[in-house]
């Protein structure tokens, strides 16, 4: 059975992803720190990573009063994987189709092409998650099919 790591903090998304991956063996962690720790210690156990973009830095209870949200925490996970040479095939699943940045917004497509360019060796693609629609499931399925089994 394929094993997946999911880094996600949104409860509803977690529910939907859990349902989607019910046939898989999956682990869910909710922050940059717990996600990265899992990748560093157990990367060989996983086939791929489902990554959210905006995540808290630490798990709940360990953060600052404001929650230490990292708008691009997902991108930082990708950078850490590259830096540590722990490259796990990654699919970004985000509910944001626009990201606010200094001096304007970054669209989903712009972000996706930036990530493809920067992490070409292990970044598979991005899925726009919309809770009220199911199209994300098809997109996700398509990306998953591109990822070989870890034992292959």
């Amino acid at each position: 059975m394929r094993k997946i790591l999911i880094i996600e903090d949104d409860k509803i998304k977690i529910e939907k992803l859990s349902a989607f991956f019910k046939e898989y063996d999956y682990t869910i962690v909710e922050s940059y720190h717990s996600g990265l720790k899992e990748i560093v210690s157990s990367i060989t156990q996983y086939d791929f990573l489902i990554l959210d973009m905006t995540i808290p830095l630490w798990d709940k209870g360990n953060t600052d009063l404001g929650g230490n949200y990292e708008q691009f925490g997902g991108e930082r996970i990708l950078r850490e994987m590259k830096r540590r040479k722990k490259e796990l095939p990654t699919i970004l699943v985000t509910m944001f189709d626009i990201f606010s940045i200094l001096g304007g917004n970054l669209t989903f497509d712009e972000l996706n092409s930036y990530l493809k360019n920067q992490f070409a060796t292990f970044y598979v693609g991005a899925v726009f998650y919309n809770a009220s629609e199911d199209t994300w499931k098809t997109q996700l399925e398509n990306f998953i099919q591109l990822i070989p089994n870890r034992n292959d």
Binding site: D9, D10, I12, T54, M95, F96, D97, I98, F99, S100, G104, N105, T107
Partner: peptide, 15 residues
Amino acid sequence: SNQSELLPNIIKSST
């Protein structure tokens, strides 16, 4: 407009 922060803010409020 896609260039405004309004939509990202609404999405963020969901989490």
